[in-house]
């Protein structure tokens, strides 16, 4: 277990969401959520189905603009467009894999480098020495990332032909190619077998060791508690608790949200809140 190597808790914050509210018409999907992710941290976000985790994620990546509240990345308010958010330094993966399935593995990662390269139409047509150098560097960097994720041997395969677990890895490699300061993983182990989950854990630790903060949504509790320095629990759009493994596991509201309330109508923490 590498959790011991977690850095001191008061590193510089990378992501700060404060009072984020997301309403769709009359439905409040996310309600007054605050979340801070610090440099070199792995933070988990859990909650029952429909709790608003992915909606919150989409607020962080520019796919949605929050109705209220602000999200800042390294002190700057996030721009409202996904591609600008990526350029600022937040990369993400998707709950259902969204690779460019008819491109090769290497090309997928090269697309991830889009924001970190500047070559436009004319330099592509003229192919000067600058263009060649940049293209060469991009390829080398992409191959390094594939090496890092253990996909280097398959760089010329089509993404669609990879087995499921490797497609997940490729999605992570593609996200890393944009050189993010914060990586958002949306259910990275969905549909994986225990060995693959184990490999994914190792990969996330390795990413953290690169100095990249990670925010991960997950249903697999074992995975989350092995991995995360801190875990926030979202229930019905509200963050009910945030803390380390013991804090979350021993919180009655969390237990109530997942397992239901005890039969004897004793006052539970959730009710006391309201």
């Amino acid at each position: 277990m590498t959790t011991d190597t977690a850095p001191a808790p008061l590193a510089e914050p990378v992501l700060e969401a404060s009072g984020v509210v997301m309403r769709f018409g009359g439905l409040t999907a996310v309600n007054q959520v605050d979340l801070t992710v610090r440099q070199g941290e792995i933070v988990g976000l859990i909650g029952p189905n429909g709790a608003g985790k992915t909606t919150f994620f989409n607020c962080l990546t520019g796919l949605y603009v929050p109705t209220e509240g602000t999200v800042t990345y390294k002190g700057r308010v996030l721009p409202p467009k996904p591609h600008l958010v990526t350029e600022a330094g937040i990369a993400r993966t998707f709950q259902n894999i969204r690779l460019f399935s008819n491109m090769t593995v290497l090309e997928n990662v090269l697309v991830g480098r889009h924001t970190r390269t500047k070559e436009g139409l004319f330099s592509a047509i003229l192919r000067g020495p600058g263009y060649r150098r940049a293209e060469q560097e991009s390829r080398e960097r992409a191959m390094e990332l594939l090496e890092f994720c253990g996909l280097a041997a398959k760089s010329e395969h089509l993404a669609r032909n990879l087995p499921y677990g490797e497609q997940r890895k490729l999605e992570i490699a593609r996200a890393l190619a944009s050189e993010p300061g914060l990586l958002l993983l949306d259910e990275p182990t969905a549909g994986m077998n225990p060995q693959e989950t184990r490999a994914a854990e190792e990969l996330v630790f390795a990413i953290r060791d690169l100095g990249i903060a990670v925010l991960v949504i997950e249903h697999d509790m074992k995975f989350i508690f092995n991995l995360c320095d801190r875990t926030a629990v979202l229930v019905q759009g509200q963050k009910i608790v945030e803390g380390d493994r013991e804090t979350v596991q021993n919180d009655e509201r969390v237990v109530a949200a997942y397992l239901g309330e005890p039969l004897e109508g004793t006052t539970t923490a959730t009710e006391a809140d309201q």
Partner: peptide, 23 residues
């Protein structure tokens, strides 16, 4: 080239391409 790959990415999955930083 970079632009050509961005075109194919947009063709394949526009949302994912946007999330990869492609305008």
């Amino acid at each position: 080239s970079r632009i050509g790959r961005a075109w194919v990415a947009i063709r394949e999955d526009e949302t994912a391409a946007e999330a990869m930083g492609i305008n």
